[in-house]
């Protein structure tokens, strides 16, 4: 099953399609996640691997949101980060999990086959209803940029 040095072997999708072999740190971690409509969801803040005893680990979820980013910023900065977020969102800070079968492509950005998980939009929605919508012109589209 050696695919040699072919293009799909190298961790990038030359167009749609999933690579056969890839490096997680290079091709998945810290990449932008876009949902099916091209809306930015967040970054792949971490990747979860899980296994049954005696079997190979498998990629079980992409993790995103501050709950996954916090632990990565370990050290003093990371701890401050976690305390700060704990205060903002006291209701436990579990990362958002995206199952790998919802991924359309990994690189250059992670594209999903579904709309964004609702938990990723909590802060966005709060700021929208409490601040941005109240400023005149907030719903105005920047037509020239389209």
């Amino acid at each position: 099953m050696n695919t040699g040095r072919g293009g799909d072997d190298t961790g990038h999708g030359a167009g749609p399609g999933l690579p056969r072999v890839m490096r997680l740190g290079f091709a998945v971690l810290d990449r932008q996640i876009l949902d099916v409509d091209g809306v930015a969801v967040g970054k792949v803040d971490d990747v979860e691997l899980s296994w049954e005893e005696g079997r190979r680990p498998v990629l079980s979820a992409l993790l995103t949101d501050t709950g996954a980013l916090g632990p990565r910023l370990s050290g003093r900065l990371g701890r401050t980060w976690r305390t700060l977020l704990g205060r903002l969102r006291p209701s436990g800070d579990l990362p958002v999990r995206i199952p790998p079968d919802q991924v359309h492509t990994f690189t250059p950005a992670t594209r999903l086959t579904r709309p964004a998980p609702p938990q990723t939009r909590v802060v966005e929605d709060w700021l929208r209803t409490h601040l941005i919508e109240r400023i005149p012109g907030g719903g105005h589209a920047d037509s020239d940029g389209q």
């Binding site: 700021l127 929208r128 941005i132 400023i135 719903g139 105005h140 589209a141 920047d142 389209q146």
Partner: peptide, 8 residues
């Protein structure tokens, strides 16, 4: 180029 409400 996105509406401000979509990039709060």
């Amino acid at each position: 180029s996105v509406r401000p409400v979509q990039a709060a």
